[in-house]
């Protein structure tokens, strides 16, 4: 079976600046691929170019086994769906109507049924009739992800779907995307939370200054060497009871004790004899 997404030598230039340089990789159906990299590495540009939303100077993009150029708008929408990082919604439409926008081509009542089902999956079914502008940022992020899921596309591309959310919501969102991958979709997701990405994804692609710096299983792709050269971190992904965590500090600032795993493992239970507040 052909890959859901295949990039070959993808090159993008913006305002005379080379943003992506010969990036090649693919995403198979049934796989969740994490795209990580520092700010400005070219993650969003890569996603947009991969979907034809951004002009590219060189390279090829194949969606569902066909070159992107040969796909009609409708066919492309059938093969791939996109959740942009931007969460602005212009009008205060009810959540279920917004999610139903994802189910293009279905009759209205069926689209609405799909929308409610997707909202349930993201545990915001009770908010189906609430206007999206009357929601918290976290609620809206779930609604927009539900819109992505409602497309039922074989390739789901989500740009920072979990950014700015509380830990439980972040985990829920990546869990739901992962469930879609298990159900046979290819999922490509960007994240700045390396541990979260490493835990949820089958493979990680690391982008650095517009080029692919590493690609492989999370631990291999996010090796101490990659953490140092790409992210400027001294440390490693380490096992913890809840899954992989990132234990690292900034390479230059010696005094920063940024031991994330220490925080993750810190007890939130009250000490013996201390009453719950």
């Amino acid at each position: 079976m052909s890959a859901a997404l295949e990039l070959r030598g993808l090159t993008v230039t913006r305002r005379d600046r080379r943003v992506l340089e010969g990036v090649s990789f693919g995403a198979e159906r049934g796989e969740m691929l994490g795209l990580v990299g520092p700010n400005g590495a070219g993650k969003t540009t890569l996603l947009r170019a991969a979907l034809g939303l951004q002009r590219r100077e060189g390279g090829e993009v194949w969606l569902g086994g066909a070159p992107l150029e040969r796909l009609s708008d409708a066919r492309r929408a059938f093969l791939a769906a996109y959740l942009p990082q931007e969460r602005r919604v212009a009008w205060n439409m009810p959540a279920e109507d917004v999610v139903a926008l994802g189910a293009v081509g279905l009759p209205a009542h069926q689209a609405l049924a799909v929308a409610r089902e997707c909202l349930e999956q993201l545990e915001v079914g009770a908010l189906a009739r609430r206007g999206v502008l009357d929601m918290s940022g976290g609620e809206r992020a779930r609604v927009l992800l539900a819109r992505l899921l409602a497309t039922g596309a074989p390739l789901l591309v989500a740009d920072e779907p979990a950014a700015g959310l509380d830990p439980e919501a972040q985990m829920l969102i990546l869990e739901r995307l992962r469930a879609r991958a298990r159900a046979g979709a290819a999922v490509v997701v960007t994240s700045h939370d390396l541990a979260l990405a490493a835990r949820a994804c089958d493979r990680i692609a690391v982008l650095h200054s517009g080029a692919l710096a590493a690609l492989g299983a999370p631990r291999d792709a996010l090796s101490p060497k990659v953490l140092a050269t790409v992210f400027g971190l001294e440390g490693a992904l380490v096992d913890a009871p809840g899954g992989l965590v990132l234990s690292a500090r900034r390479l230059t600032a010696q005094r920063t004790p940024a031991s994330v795993d220490g925080m993750a493992e810190a007890s939130v239970a009250p000490r013996a004899g201390e009453p719950y507040a």
Binding site: D73, R75, V98, V104
Partner: peptide, 16 residues
């Protein structure tokens, strides 16, 4: 209606 979610979502919706 599709533009409610912005240009990119609309462009990816399959509508011309």
């Amino acid at each position: 209606r599709m533009l409610t979610l912005g240009d990119e979502s609309a462009a990816m919706s399959g509508l011309p």
